[in-house]
């Protein structure tokens, strides 16, 4: 579904991603884990077209996407639930969801998808007319995910969905991600919450200082001595 081949990414003169390659297969949940500043969000931003790789290729279903305009990606089936939610704070919950389905098939299916989002997150349904800036952190995260789902993407990317949420909400959000996958979407997730993420995902990549140092099945990495020592604190 998504294939990233040997990308380098730099902010000005400062290179932060070095020769990173990974792939996300159809129907998989793939996680990218790493410490603060390892380059996780940079990779996400590069895949979603906000940043351009200095070298290498990014292919979505075999088609190169690192050269196209970022606003066309959503039509190609790639949705991004960005870090810190990035909602439109003065728009209502419902308007935010509508913004997620501006084009093509998503637009035609808008009413139906919205009902589905509301059934996944009943809280959003109760607050559909409220300005999104006034929601709690957990509700905002639900809305950001809902907005991503509105695009009916083939691949949905989550950037730190558990950021700043209470543990019980984190569990809810992770359950939703599992549901999303079970409905046929492919998931790429970037997280610092390593234990829960590894338990959720099929495969994971470990990112350290802008390079991928390890990869494997989530369950295997959970038992890996290096991962245990560096990220799980045991």
């Amino acid at each position: 579904m998504l294939e990233v081949r040997n990308i380098d990414v730099a902010y000005g003169d400062v290179q932060v991603i070095w020769d990173v390659s990974f792939r996300v297969g159809q129907g998989e949940i793939v996680a990218m884990i790493g410490a603060n500043g390892a380059g996780k969000s940079t990779i996400m931003r590069t895949v979603s077209g906000v940043l351009r790789p200095g070298k290498g290729q990014i292919l979505l279903a075999g088609e190169p996407i690192h050269t196209v305009e970022p606003y066309t990606l959503i039509e190609k089936g790639l949705a991004h639930v960005p870090e810190a939610r990035r909602l439109f704070p003065e728009m209502s919950v419902e308007e935010n969801l509508d913004m997620g389905s501006l084009r093509g098939r998503a637009r035609k299916e808008r009413a139906r998808t919205k009902e589905r989002v509301f059934s996944i997150f009943p809280r959003l349904s109760e607050r559909r007319r409220q300005a999104s800036g006034t929601l709690s952190g957990g509700e905002q995260q639900m809305l950001a995910i809902g907005r991503g789902l509105m695009a009916l993407p083939r691949l949905i990317m989550f950037d730190e969905p558990s950021l700043g949420l209470a543990p019980i909400l984190v569990q809810d959000i992770f359950n939703v991600i599992r549901t999303v996958r079970d409905e046929g979407m492919t998931v790429l997730i970037v997280e610092q919450n390593v234990r829960q993420t590894l338990a959720l995902c099929d495969r994971a990549y470990v990112l350290e200082n802008g390079r991928i140092t390890q990869e494997g099945a989530g369950a295997d990495l959970l038992r890996d001595p290096h991962v245990k020592a560096a990220y799980l604190g045991v």
Partner: peptide
């Protein structure tokens, strides 16, 4: 309005 509120997010919504 979407552009005013968050330009990057607007772009990733397909605007």
């Amino acid at each position: 309005v979407a552009i005013r509120e968050d330009q990057d997010a607007a772009e990733s919504m397909g605007i």
